[in-house]
Design a protein around this nucleic acid. Structure first.
Lengths: 319, 319
DNA sequence: ATTTTCACTAAGCAATTGCTCACACATGGT
DNA sequence: ACCATGTGTGAGCAATTGCTTAGTGAAAAT
């Protein structure tokens, strides 16, 4: 009783206790310090730690009318299963805190099920942040399958891998994709995809309850390019061919249709299901995501969307 | 679009937006004021309003070891379906914020089900506070049935009625008990209970997924007495006869057994099911609740408990 | 034994927040 | 028109919080 396996647990416990007294019982840090016999600074550190580590969570329990109406409009117009729109922080329009929280709530709902569930995920900053917001639950019966590799051609890995981290978080079985996003040659992709592990990924995706994917723009500043997944020549070719966005590495044009360039035969990720065969949630916000999302909606590449108010408004503009 | 049915909605929306930016995006009230074009004070009021109205919620997502071990010990010793123990605010040991939050989480879980669910509830401050913490969901298919009336013999009603408020909150069907807790005469109770509405209450309780009840001590300061449900003479008689606690008006002694006094034939609430036929959650904390809870545990009057750390420790002492 | 490292504390300052008060403005009743 | 009433606002102050610095002591490393 009352013993801790290590110091870290004790610290987390103290932090949780301090945060409880602070947020839920509404005490000041001074009072908590006296109560727990610590210095005020220690309490301040604990509370801050608890917030950073998300031992304590904030959740909005009120539908904001303007967000709701944007969401409904988008969902109806594109026949989505759902659309979540969160308030934009205008001082920092690229902030992903809001959408990742909303995404985490959706993931939570699916993952809290006791029945074994397969979830397919892409990669990206926003998804990664969403995983950090997930509730701590233990679901060894679930399976997390990666839709896309996270290696560049030069072999270095992007830090935004999601499947492993998600599986870690909930103790699920993990099925990462051991591949680059885009291979050097078409033959290389063939070789990769003929491996048994790829067949398993395909098989699992077919059983997946839902897919969660990010969305990228295609430009010289695009994440796909910056993270080194595609070369200068390739990005130029893609832009030239009219590609405006990509999902799990698959480029598409303004109408959401596939773009035939030399990389099309070298994208190693699982194919996009068009139209989606399962709940396919696209997550993203920010000015640069507007046209990719518009295109994806037009091309019916998704069946659900999580974004923010500013992006939602631009998506609805002059359509 | 963007229109509001009334001013209150607009205010709540603004508050929600301010709270979102404050808690979720981590901006200062000053920044939010500039962004929403309001004074800092207005933002401070909005944030405070959002917290008070629970538009924004705090939730702990970390099991505190000492609370967990107390909970496990109690649950095992008394074969409970669950026991939730929350940290105590030692500066205010009677504070019910924590247990009501924990209770609300348990209620939420049951009420979020889509399948029509019947929930039976007692009365009391803690339960009342728990209802205020519930998520805003709409569940017209559910039914809320009251286990106990909330009128005193003199006809005045206690403000701690729970069933109606709970039903309001989630839009469920309501089945209040139109009766005093203790009638004047045994005949009066007979008359009440022969009414059709009572048969319905019984019937519904039999279908209930769970009961949530408070627990009271029996003393001159007990809520039952202070709220005027029982007279001076009656409380004296009960104490004399060895009653230490009550649940929905039913008094019991230190072993959790019924106490035969003159009021036993006049308690109008639905009978206690002993042992419980369904999930029966007792909610309460504070020094004065210790022996009632101990007694109820001994007499197997409950199948789940929500309390706080200090109370839990005292419950486990020298048993 | 000595040094290094680390974590913590006290102190103090600057930023942020909570609260009060006096005042403006709208509303509804007389 | 005039007056209560209440609702919201801005200013200002006090409390609280976030953060930095310097110092202390314990544990680990040398």
């Amino acid at each position: 009783m009352g013993e801790f396996s290590n110091q870290g647990d004790k610290r987390r416990d103290d932090a949780a206790r301090a945060a409880w007294l602070y947020f839920i019982n509404g005490r000041t840090q001074d009072e908590i310090a006296r109560q727990l016999d610590l210095s005020r600074q220690a309490v301040q550190r604990l509370v801050s730690f608890a917030v950073n580590e998300k031992l304590i969570k904030f959740r909005m329990d009120h539908p904001i009318a303007s967000c709701m109406s944007l969401a409904q409009e988008i969902a109806e117009r594109h026949q989505l299963e759902f659309c979540d729109v969160v308030p934009t922080d205008r001082a920092e329009p690229e902030s992903i805190g809001g959408v990742s929280l909303a995404t985490a709530l959706r993931m939570n709902r699916l993952l809290s099920a006791k029945a074994p569930t397969v979830l397919a995920v892409g990669t990206g900053r926003t998804l990664r942040a969403a995983v950090d917001e997930l509730d701590a639950i233990d679901r060894p019966q679930h399976k997390i399958v990666s839709l896309v590799g996270n290696m560049a051609a030069d072999g270095h890995a992007s830090p935004y891998e999601v499947a492993m981290r998600l599986a870690d978080k909930i103790g699920a079985q993990r099925f990462p994709m051991p591949a680059p996003v885009v291979t050097e040659t078409a033959e290389e992709r063939e070789a990769l995809q003929s491996q048994r592990s790829f067949a398993i990924l395909h098989e699992l995706r077919a059983q997946a309850r839902a897919s969660f994917v990010g969305i990228g723009e295609l430009s010289w500043q695009s994440p796909l390019h910056q993270d080194g997944f595609v070369s200068d020549a390739e990005i130029a070719e893609l832009i030239e061919a009219g590609a405006v966005g990509e999902i799990t590495g698959w480029p598409f044009d303004i109408d959401g249709r596939r773009v035939d360039t030399s990389i099309y035969d070298r994208v190693a990720s699982l194919n996009l299901e068009t139209p989606p065969k399962r709940l396919t949630v696209v997550v993203g916000c920010g000015p640069q995501k507007v046209s990719p999302i518009k295109a994806a909606l037009t091309g019916q590449l998704l069946s659900a969307l999580v974004t923010d108010e500013a992006t939602a408004m631009k998506i609805l503009e002059d359509q």
